[in-house]
């Protein structure tokens, strides 16, 4: 989970406080519908009623996706990837049933299968 950032302090790739960087891009984008759906789903799962996971658990799940994914996936892709891993880890859903349902949905929407 952690990587050697310098000689002294092991630091995770998500642990950005103070590491420095370029100018802040202030451009904002309007969320796409799928991004709102991921936000809503993830919000429900950490909400008081479901409590299927905590916010910390989700953050940890995102931070343990690996640096490649952490730096290449979009924000809500990370949320969804982390949330799925947690649901599978907790035994709420299995990878197989998610895959199977994704295939059904792609057929239903007339999309080409991927992955």
């Amino acid at each position: 989970m952690t990587q050697q950032d310098d000689d002294r302090a092991p630091r995770g790739y998500h642990d950005l406080g103070g590491v420095g960087g370029g100018p802040v891009d202030m451009t904002e984008h309007v969320l796409e519908p799928w991004e709102k759906r991921v936000d809503a789903l993830c919000g429900i799962l950490v909400g008081k009623k479901c409590r299927l996971m905590t916010i910390d658990e989700r953050r940890d799940a995102i931070e343990t996706l690996g640096e490649d994914k952490y730096t290449s996936l979009k924000y809500y892709e990370l949320w969804m990837a982390g949330t799925m891993n947690l649901l599978i880890e907790k035994g709420t859903l299995s990878q197989d049933e998610i895959d199977e349902r994704m295939d059904q949905i792609r057929r239903r929407l007339g999309l080409e299968a991927e992955e």
Partner: peptide
């Protein structure tokens, strides 16, 4: 409608459907 339906967008639908069914 501007909505890219990539892997994770479809995954959200799948997870949502399954959890609602449960």
């Amino acid at each position: 409608e501007e909505d890219s339906l990539g892997y994770y967008a479809i995954a959200e639908m799948a997870v949502r459907e399954l959890l609602i069914e449960r």
